[in-house]
């Protein structure tokens, strides 16, 4: 991450400082990293020292997003959309270029990743709140609300191991939606639980989005993005193919011939 003071413009009466800025961001993965080094290969030579192939999941990605925008990220599989989310959430750090984020980022990437299956739902509320960066008092004051919203009833004191996948998702969503994000990052649209809960969670998400200063949503569906986004970023094979107003970019995306999957 770059120094936020760097390149900071002088604050004007109506300063248009980008909330999120990527400048020439590149992130690569080692294609052979699946074959990790082993003690045996260290001792016997083996594949150690062999040239490894790099796969650039993102390359030369630059854009600025401002307060109040809803940025849709679109592109085929393997375009680097998820990697972009990981970079914005500071889960992955860029190998090239810089990412600068001014504000508290909350990510709803995969629900329930932080669950400990042996613990009760109640204990998991505290644990997941902590993973998401909430203070203990903050999450504790909302436990009752989370339990109620998740509609788990007495199950809340049972180990999460005994939950159905729908119950787990409902609990995870209820916890995550208690966040007070400034910058909200969503990977794909969250559709959780039965229809009644889906309706409820959609409303909750809308509230959350209304409170956020900037929203980044990743999706395959240009139709969905068109309905809510102000801006769009089109990624293809790790590079920016287009960036601008949602209508313009999504029109171009739909008009383009489908490309082969890169990933």
């Amino acid at each position: 991450m770059s120094d936020p003071k760097q390149n900071e413009p002088v604050e004007g009466p109506e300063s248009r400082e980008p909330v999120v800025e990527m400048d020439g961001v590149g992130i690569y993965f080692h294609l052979q990293s699946r074959r990790r080094i082993s003690i045996k290969s260290l001792l016997l030579g083996g594949s150690f020292g062999q040239e490894r192939k790099l796969l650039w999941a993102l390359r030369d990605v630059s854009f600025k997003a401002y307060e109040g925008e809803i940025l849709g990220v679109i592109g085929p599989n393997g375009a680097g959309k998820s990697t972009l989310c990981l970079a914005l959430s500071e889960i992955l750090l860029p190998d090239e270029g810089s990412v600068s984020v001014r504000g508290r980022v909350s990510t709803l990437l995969s629900l329930g990743a932080g669950f400990n299956r042996d613990l009760s739902g109640r204990d998991n509320i505290l644990l997941n709140g902590a993973y998401l960066g909430m203070r203990r008092e903050q999450i504790q004051s909302r436990v009752a609300e989370i339990v109620e919203f998740s509609e788990l009833g007495d199950f809340i004191d049972q180990p999460v191991r005994f939950y159905s996948s729908g119950m787990r998702a409902r609990l995870a969503f209820s916890i995550a939606s208690c966040l007070e994000p400034e910058i909200l990052i969503l990977d794909e649209v969250l559709s959780v639980g039965d229809r009644a809960f889906q309706e409820k969670s959609r409303r909750r998400l809308e509230e959350l989005m209304a409170r956020s200063r900037l929203i980044v949503i990743v999706s395959h569906s240009s139709e969905f993005l068109r309905s809510i986004c102000t801006h769009a970023l089109w990624l293809e094979r790790g590079r920016v193919r287009g960036y601008g107003s949602a209508k313009e970019i999504l029109d171009a995306y739909e008009a383009a011939p489908p490309t082969g999957e890169a990933g």
Partner: peptide, 9 residues
Amino acid sequence: EGLIKSLAF
């Protein structure tokens, strides 16, 4: 792994 790749901490 799943945790590390989906939550920022």
